[in-house]
């Protein structure tokens, strides 16, 4: 056993820790929020908004 063996164990430990952090948060989020809310993102919604803004904001020349 030398330092590197401990570092190996450390790496396993940290991997498990990060995995656990993700897992816990995932479960927390999935049980707290509704599925509709989580999957409500739509492609291009922001684009449509900014596009509209520009049309309304400009003097109509656009």
């Amino acid at each position: 056993m030398d330092t590197w063996n401990y570092i190996e164990y450390g790496a396993w430990g940290l991997s498990a820790l990060f995995g656990l952090l993700i897992l816990i948060d995932w479960i927390k989020i999935d049980t707290t929020y509704s599925e509709e809310m989580l999957t409500s993102s739509r492609e291009g919604v922001l684009e449509a908004m900014t596009e509209k803004h520009r049309l309304e904001g400009s003097d109509g020349t656009l």
Partner: peptide
């Protein structure tokens, strides 16, 4: 362990 750690940390 280092391969796994890199992937887990970045994820």
């Amino acid at each position: 362990p280092f391969i796994v750690l890199a992937i887990m940390f970045l994820a």
